[in-house]
Design a protein around this nucleic acid. Structure first.
Lengths: 249, 249
DNA sequence: AAAAATCTTGCAAAAAGTTGCAAAAAGCGT
DNA sequence: ACGCTTTTTGCAACTTTTTGCAAGATTTTT
């Protein structure tokens, strides 16, 4: 295993768990503790982790604090983000909506992944700026205090100029029969515009948000190409969606 | 469990409950009381908690911690932000650039102040979202990783559609003879566009950034209407600017 | 004031870190 | 392909940090 691979692996672990133990890493990587120690020392020197006695902890808490505990169903969202990453190819143009699942995805993108990301979520944009190679473009507009995203006509207008390779649609209410629905009329306009602006639509949804219906419809179930949940792909719970022709990850 | 994790856990408990007992922590963390005691002693010494007999209590009221210490010349910037606020009227349309001085201004806006703020700084936007009555509009574009602001043609184009009542120009290099200059060409384009988009231009500058000249010019000294520094308005240091007809606060 | 709880101090064992070194691996010019 | 240098890695001896324990002092409670 190459040194760089090893360090990427370590960074991944740090991001996922927010902390790593020297001994764990030495076993997982099948190298001596000294080597891991040197890696951590290097990563610390370059500001990528914080080295502490016995291991290292994440150091990317500076500007806005991301608190894992505060994010509901964090574990599930982390799994979803991992699966979503498998869909991505280098150099793609990606459109990301808001929500904590998308934030998690932004956080877990490997350090050496290259892409252009359009987003209208302030937290997602903040997170992406910490990534060394991702080019981030923020789609402006009137900001929603609650959702921390751009909303309104201007935003929809800006989206109409875009054609992304893939769009990650976060939090919403998904039902196999009724399709994707939302509570907020403006968010519906936004998501419609996002769908129109992308070749491939991927829905990131924790299972408990599924099979519920809200007032306004964003699109039919078939309008979504790929569905990613925290469940195993063959969970019977997902069967109705598979029948509708969605790719399930 | 790592020492730092333990201390983070303790800090979390302290913030949540405002007080912690030594014995409780020892059980929850599955370590000896001595260890917890040492942790609390350390955290106390570093001003993170207040150690008391049998446990510790919270010592800070800045509930959401905006890290004041990390901002260079924070004191000066705070004074500047206070003065800047005196310029504002209810219901105005304000355009804010990036930089920590503007961030400070955003932070210090009184809770009952009403206005519409356009900005291209991600941190400023984040801060404004916490304000109950300010309407925030983010001017999108390609994001700069270092400055955390929108840059580029798209941003300049969006600015051209705008006419704000007042524009707060942050950090730059200001010289009485040479005017406002910048290191980065793209930032110059941006600031020019911001100036064109505003009726009144206010420069927020800490005194040490004055009387220095950089490669690219944004505008003449007279192009700025009001100058706000941390100095007293009649400081002789500011005389050259007064002579040029600037309002000094 | 006595009892209980908590704190201080010193100490020792375990875990982790440091340093120097040498072998293996990789890179490089010829 | 061949020596040469440089980098990487693991090892060993030694140091430092961390942690729990115990004895005695101090504080709090009853």
């Amino acid at each position: 295993m190459l040194k760089e691979e090893r360090r990427n692996f370590i960074m991944n672990e740090v991001k996922m768990r927010n902390r790593v133990l020297l001994t764990d890493l030495a076993i997982k990587l099948a190298v001596s503790e000294d080597t891991v120690r040197r890696d951590l020392k290097y990563l610390d020197k370059h500001g990528q982790v914080k080295k502490v006695h016995g291991g290292a902890i994440s150091n990317s808490f500076h500007l806005y604090h991301y608190r894992e505990q505060e994010i509901y169903a964090h574990e599930s969202k982390s799994i979803i983000a991992q699966k979503a990453h498998a869909l991505l190819k280098e150099g793609q143009v990606i459109l990301m909506s808001g929500g904590t699942t998308n934030l998690e995805l932004a956080r877990l993108l490997p350090q050496d992944f290259q892409a252009t990301v359009f987003t209208l979520s302030l937290p997602v944009a903040m997170q992406l700026l910490e990534h060394p190679t991702i080019e981030t473009i923020f789609i402006g507009g009137r900001l929603s205090k609650e959702a921390q995203i751009s909303l309104g006509a201007e935003t929809v207008q800006a989206l109409s100029q875009l054609k992304a390779d893939v769009c990650f649609l976060g939090t919403g209410h998904l039902d196999a029969d009724y399709g994707l629905t939302e509570i907020d009329w403006e968010v519906v306009q936004l998501k419609k515009a996002m769908i129109a602006a992308s070749r491939k639509i991927v829905s990131l949804t924790i299972s408990e948000k599924m099979n519920s219906v809200q007032r306004y419809k964003v699109c039919e179930t078939q309008g979504i190409h790929t569905l990613i949940t925290e469940l195993k792909p063959h969970d019977p719970f997902l069967e109705p969606f598979r029948k509708q022709g969605l790719e399930i990850l």
